[in-house]
């Protein structure tokens, strides 16, 4: 399953909760304010590093750009909406709103 998270990890426990449930190997997509989790140099970086050992983690390009985020945690894969569609074709979705 593709787990999608749209909240900042500093405002909501959603990403943490999602990581606790998503089995190793499940892809995780960060979009909307969820992309703040992908920023390097934050207090969440270490947690995201750990998560990247278990999951492919994607962040939506247009949401990153809108927020001025370009320095990202290493290993995060930046994707377009077209790639998002491909991910949903490959995996059914668990929206962790």
């Amino acid at each position: 399953m593709l787990y999608t998270v749209n909240k900042s990890p500093f405002a909501s426990p959603n990403l943490e909760r999602c990581l606790q449930v998503a089995p190793a190997g499940s892809p995780i997509l960060l979009y909307e304010d969820g992309v703040y989790a992908a920023a390097a140099g934050t207090a969440f970086e270490e947690r995201l590093h750990a998560a990247l050992q278990a999951h492919p983690i994607y962040a939506l390009q247009s949401d990153l750009e809108a927020r001025g985020l370009s320095n990202l945690v290493e290993g995060v894969r930046v994707i377009t909406y077209e790639d998002f569609v491909d991910l949903v074709i490959e995996h059914n979705v668990v929206p962790w709103l």
């Binding site: 399953m1 089995p23 499940s26 059914n92 979705v93 668990v94």
Partner: peptide, 17 residues
């Protein structure tokens, strides 16, 4: 438990939050 919840998601055609 959490593993069972993840397995439950897999069984469903649609998950409505």
């Amino acid at each position: 438990d959490r593993a069972a919840l993840a397995a439950l998601f897999e069984e469903h055609a649609a998950v409505l939050p």
